[in-house]
Amino acid sequence: MSKTFPYNQDLASLLSLSFSAMNQELHNRLKEAGFGDVRPAHSFLFQGLMPDGATAKTLVAHLGISKQAVSQMLDYLEECGYVARKPHPSDGRGKMVVLTERGWSLVRTKENIYKEIEQRWARMIGSDHMKTLQQDLKHIIENVNEEDLQHPLRPVW
């Protein structure tokens, strides 16, 4: 690493900065693709809706934020055309939140952008290093919480 590297070189800083770089590029490119109304926090909500939708209660648990915050996010995303609230198939009073065609289009675009970024990064560090990095991070994530399943990993807000 260069002596002029202006950031802390501890692992937490490096992971955070690399995530930030990827996220910034993703959202710049999503904007160019016509999805400029999506914010970074929405990505985690979309993950909770795939593949078949979810209830607001499930999303609250998935995101670790208040019911009101989830409701506001859903209102915004519904207004923008990414999600729709549908009757719950087995609970007459409940609602399921599902991705619309625009929502699925966003997901596909996001996946393609991530794939392109990962491929470019793999060219920078080598594809074997990239595969090892992905495997190692996956291993850490799968095992970091092993003893404490009461506290699932969630997005960092």
Rank of each mutant, 00 (worst) to 15 (best):
G48R: 08
L74K: 06
L15W: 04
D52E: 11
E101V: 14
K57V: 14
R108Y: 08
G81F: 07
A21P: 00
G34T: 00
K57C: 04
P87I: 00
H151F: 14
A41Y: 05
S16F: 03
K57H: 08
L30E: 04
E147S: 14
D91E: 05
M1Y: 08
I140L: 12
A84R: 14
E101Y: 11
L133V: 11
K115C: 03
L11V: 12
N8E: 14
N145P: 02
Q47R: 08
E25P: 00
E111K: 13
D75N: 15
L63E: 05
L59S: 05
H88W: 05
F5W: 14
Q150H: 15
M50D: 04
R93Q: 14
V97Q: 02
V156C: 07
D128V: 05
L74T: 09
M73F: 04
T58K: 15
G103T: 03
K57D: 11
A122E: 01
S71W: 08
R29A: 10
P51N: 04
R29F: 05
G64H: 08
D75H: 15
S18L: 09
Q134Y: 06
S90W: 10
N23V: 02
M96W: 11
G53S: 07
M73E: 13
M1W: 07
H27M: 11
V83R: 01
A56E: 15
G81L: 05
K95S: 07
H27I: 02
E147M: 14
S13C: 04
L49D: 00
R123C: 04
R93S: 13
H88Q: 01
R93D: 14
L106N: 11
R39F: 00
K31E: 13
K115A: 13
D10C: 10
A56P: 05
G81Q: 09
E78A: 15
T4Y: 11
D52G: 13
R108N: 13
